[in-house]
Design a protein around this nucleic acid. Structure first.
Lengths: 184, 184
DNA sequence: CCTGATATGTCAACATGGCTGACATAAATT
DNA sequence: AATTTATGTCAGCCATGTTGACATATCAGG
């Protein structure tokens, strides 16, 4: 293995000292948070990856069945807004999930062009299995924090999300509170 | 657009009530955090994506040049550990970054088989440009938190990362503190 | 009722960035 | 001298994103 001593090699926080020399470093890069986000998210989604592999699915399938399960009656258009992918990309994974009985469609009530999507019991079971894994990791990470700390984490994550052009699901998450029915 | 009322459709937190009926719901899924992580990370990396596109690069290039810039002298093997990809995948993007002058190689001192990687000024400029964008988002999100809140976010992210089989870079991040030289 | 807009589905082609397997070279190690 | 290690490279496959074009069903308005 390589024998580098990283502790001597880490780039120091200050910028290269050949610039204007007095620009007061407006916003020193948050190297720590940037990298922690990378590693944390990698391991977070990694939990699900192993299980998904056994089902012959990928992350794309997880995202689709997750949001359909969580927001029953979601239309295809809504799902496209949430995932921000093209309908061609969606249709590939959605078709598999439909064929294999993880999701069912129903024509819309007021608009019969729409396909309302619902997770089957099979789909719900998969989503819950995956969520359980990820929840374990989250609980473990929140366990050592005071209640105010856990609250801060939620606030932080919300504040990291773009406010402009939020889709309906995102609106619900940001404003409705996860088990909402108390939105005006 | 679809006219679903999400507030009526959100799946309630409790599980399906057809089970053992008295298993006390060991760990209710953290739907909120799971979804916030998805959206937050999507927007977080989205910042960089637009800039990268202008350079003809993708996320893979960003990760490589980022870690090389941050940990100068990183070997190829170390980089593979950090990114957890195969050398074939790495070589594709690494070659481009070398050809276009964002990164340079040098033979190792003690082991001349190794290729120590260093970011050029051009590479550093790109990394800092991207880090500045992401830092703005992070600062914005931390701004409204008390100091204890920001600390909680860091702790949370660290605790979300797998401890087993950590590579050297990760060791440094988790234990060395971002500007470390005080590790025994 | 006809017309145009909308919601969805589908075909074809392509790009990125993962992967495996096989093999080559140079340098270190034994 | 033989083996192992660090790296590079070729060839091909897979998952998942993209664009463009086009078909169908349905809604909505004159």
């Amino acid at each position: 293995m390589a024998d580098i001593n990283f502790n001597e090699l880490i780039r120091q926080s200050g910028g290269s000292p050949g610039e204007a020399a007095a620009d007061a470093d407006p916003q020193p890069p948050r190297w720590d948070i940037i990298e922690l986000l990378f590693f944390a998210y990698r391991d977070f989604v990694g939990d699900a990856d192993h299980v998904l592999e056994a089902f012959g699915f990928g992350r794309a399938h997880h995202r689709v069945v997750h949001f359909v399960c969580r927001y029953p009656g979601l239309t295809v258009a809504d799902l496209l807004d949430v995932l921000r992918i093209t309908k061609q990309s969606l249709s590939r994974v959605l078709k598999q999930l439909l064929d294999e009985g993880y999701i069912v469609q129903r024509a819309g009530d007021s608009d019969r062009r729409q396909r309302l999507l619902f997770a089957t019991a099979k789909g719900e079971a998969l989503v819950e299995k995956l969520a359980r894994l990820q929840t374990e990791r989250i609980d473990r990470a929140l366990r050592d924090l005071p209640p105010a700390g856990a609250e801060a984490v939620g606030k932080f994550l919300r504040a990291m999300i773009d406010r402009d052009d939020p889709d309906k699901v995102l609106q619900t998450i940001l404003h409705g509170g996860a088990s909402a029915k108390d939105v005006t």
